[in-house]
Amino acid sequence: MARVLVVDDATTVRMYYRDVLEEAGFTVEEAVNGFEGLEKAIEQSFDLLVVDVNMPKMDGYAFLRQGRAMPELRAVPALMISTESEPQDSARAYAAGANLYLVKPVQPQTLAEAARVMAGIAS
């Protein structure tokens, strides 16, 4: 089973991603901030990262930057999801190492399809 790490400080949002991604065939692991995300990534391996931007302790950008420099996470596709929709927001996400930038709220189908393709589990 493909494994996805969801990093978001909002409990409801994590629950939503979990629902959608489990439905899409993923095993979901959660982290409440970038820091916890990195810890999880050291312990376990993942096929996909779904990352929020604004989080306490360590934000999504910092998480991705650190991740891209770590053997465990450097090549893991990352989907960044945030509320901001200006062009510079996606550019900033890409600079930090994201592979795709989506704007909240993401429709279930959009998330499921993008996640399946990026994790390589779409048939």
Binding site: Y61, L64, R65, G67, R68, A69, M70, L73, R74, A75, V76, P77, A78, A95, A96, G97, N99
Partner: peptide
């Protein structure tokens, strides 16, 4: 890419 990110990002 931000500092230190380029190599990992290409891999991803």
């Amino acid at each position: 890419a931000d500092d230190g990110v380029a190599e990992g990002r290409i891999a991803a």
